[in-house]
Design a protein around this nucleic acid. Structure first.
Length: 374
DNA sequence: CGGTTTTGACCTGCGC
DNA sequence: GCGCAGGTCAAAACCG
C-alpha cells in the first residue's frame, strides 16, 4: 500500500540529543527516537511521550522551560548546543525530571547538528529506510504493528512462496517494499551484574545474537503482555563487561503489571511514550522502563534523545536523593550506587547496538545522524 | 502444564 | 549479486 509507505515517510523522524550529565557518580545520557510529527509539532510532546509523560500532566512544551515549581535540589550548569524550541524544552524536561536547576545559555551554542527544523526531514528519510516490522501476526499486535498488518494480509501470494521455501517454519509474511516503522527508542547504560533488569514489566526472550566486535551476545526481549509490542535489547559492553546497554523500543499499551515501590511504572502513550501506570502517580516524570534495580547493581545511564538536539551538561553536587516530585530522581536514588562513567564516549566504541544509537552523537562530528538510529 | 529460555534457521537491510 | 550483520521466528528444552 503506497499510502502506508507515505505515512512512514512523513510520520517518522527521529530526534536525538546526546546528553551526558556527569553528576558526582552518576552519568546519564541516552537516545530517543521519536515520531517526526510529534517532534515537529510538539517536540517536547513527543519527547514526553517517549519518556512516558502525559501531556495532560504537563504544560505545553513551550511553557516547560519556565516551569517554576521544580524541586531544585541541585544546581546544574548546562551548556547546550541546540536550536529551536525542542531542545530547550527537552533540556527543561531533563532538568525538570532530574530536579535540577538548569542554566541555559542565552545564545545557543554552535551545534554540530543542524537545526531541528532542517534535520527532521532528513531523519525522516533515513528512518524511512528502516525495515518493515516483522512482527508476527500470531503474536500480539502493538498499535504500530497494526500498520503493517493489512500489508501482510494482502501479500499472501508472494509470501506463500517464501513460506513454502521454508520447511516447517511459518515465517511471517513481509512486504519487500514496506519499510518498517521503527518504534521510539530509549537506550541507556547500566552498570550491573545482571543483564535482565527488573523494570516492572514482564519480558520474554525471543532471541539472542552474537554481536560483532563483542564477546557478549545481545538478547532480544518482548513484552509478554498481549497487544504490547514493546521490545528491548540487552547487551553487555565489550569494553566494560559490567556495563549493560539496554534499549527499549516501542510503547507499552498497558500499565506495568508490577509496579513495585520505586520501580518505574510505564504505560502506553500514543507516540512512543511511557506513562505512569496509574493516574494516581503524582509525578508526571517517568523515565521509560528504567529498571528496578537489584542489589549489587551499580548503574550509569546513557540517556539519549532526538538527533537534532545536542545538549551537553555538567552538573555539580547532584544528589540522587531528591524529592518525590520527580520519578526519575526517585528512581535514581533507589538503593543503588551509581558509578560515574568517566567518559561515555570512551565507552561508546564497540557497543554494537549502542554504538548505532549513541556513539554518533557522542562523537558529534560524524554526520551519521540518520544512520545512528538505523 | 503453562510460561520462559535456548538456539539454529531464516529474513532483511546495507555496503561493497 | 554477494556477504555480512542485525533482527526475528519457532520448535525444543527447560523450569516452577
Amino acid at each position: 500500500m503506497d499510502m502506508k509507505e507515505e505515512e512512514v515517510k512523513t510520520e517518522n523522524s527521529m530526534a536525538i540529543f546526546s546528553d551526558e550529565i556527569p553528576m558526582n557518580n552518576f552519568s546519564f545520557s541516552g537516545i530517543f527516537d521519536m515520531p517526526c510529527e510529534a517532534a515537529e509539532k510538539d517536540p517536547l510532546g513527543g519527547f514526553m511521550d517517549l519518556l512516558g509523560i502525559r501531556h495532560d500532566h504537563f504544560p505545553p512544551s513551550h511553557d516547560l522551560f519556565d516551569l517554576p515549581s521544580l524541586t531544585t535540589t541541585t544546581t546544574t550548569t548546562t551548556t547546550s548546543s541546540f536550536s529551536a524550541a525542542a531542545p530547550t524544552s527537552i533540556a527543561a524536561l531533563m532538568s525538570s525530571s532530574m530536579t535540577m536547576t538548569m542554566t541555559m545559555p542565552a545564545q545557543p551554542l554552535p551545534s554540530p547538528s543542524p537545526p531541528s527544523s532542517t534535520v527532521l526531514p532528513e531523519t525522516s528519510e533515513v528512518l524511512n529506510t528502516t525495515p518493515t516490522t516483522p512482527n508476527s501476526s500470531s503474536i500480539s499486535s502493538s498499535s504500530n504493528d497494526d500498520q503493517t498488518k493489512p500489508l501482510q494480509e494482502e501479500e499472501g501470494d508472494a509470501d506463500q512462496q517464501d513460506q513454502e521455501k521454508t520447511t516447517h517454519k511459518q515465517l511471517k509474511p513481509k512486504k519487500k517494499n514496506q519499510k518498517r516503522q521503527r518504534e521510539p527508542r530509549f537506550a541507556f547504560m547500566t552498570k550491573s551484574e545482571v543483564d535482565q533488569l527488573d523494570d516492572g514489566y514482564r519480558w520474554r526472550k525471543y532471541g539472542q545474537k552474537a554481536v560483532k566486535n563483542s564477546p557478549y551476545p545481545r538478547s532480544y526481549y518482548r513484552c509478554t503482555s498481549a497487544g504490547c509490542g514493546v521490545k528491548k535489547r540487552v547487551e553487555r559492553s565489550s569494553d566494560d563487561p559490567s556495563i549493560v546497554v539496554t534499549t527499549y523500543e516501542g510503547q507499552h499499551t498497558h500499565p506495568s503489571p508490577a509496579t513495585p515501590r520505586g520501580s518505574i511504572g510505564i504505560a502506553p502513550m500514543e507516540s512512543g511514550g511511557f506513562v505512569p501506570p496509574a493516574a494516581t502517580s503524582p509525578s508526571p516524570f517517568v523515565i521509560p522502563q528504567l529498571p528496578n534495580y537489584q542489589q549489587q547493581q551499580q548503574h550509569s545511564f546513557i540517556y539519549s534523545s532526538p538527533p537534532s538536539l545536542n545538549i551537553s551538561s555538567s552538573t555539580t553536587g547532584f544528589s540522587p536523593s531528591s524529592s518525590s516530585s520527580s520519578s526519575f530522581p526517585a528512581f535514581v536514588q533507589e538503593r543503588h550506587n551509581y558509578n560515574y562513567i568517566p567518559s561515555s564516549a570512551s565507552l561508546l566504541r564497540d557497543y554494537g547496538l549502542l554504538e548505532d544509537l549513541v556513539s554518533t552523537q557522542m562523537r558529534s562530528t560524524e554526520q551519521r545522524d540518520g544512520d545512528m538510529i538505523d
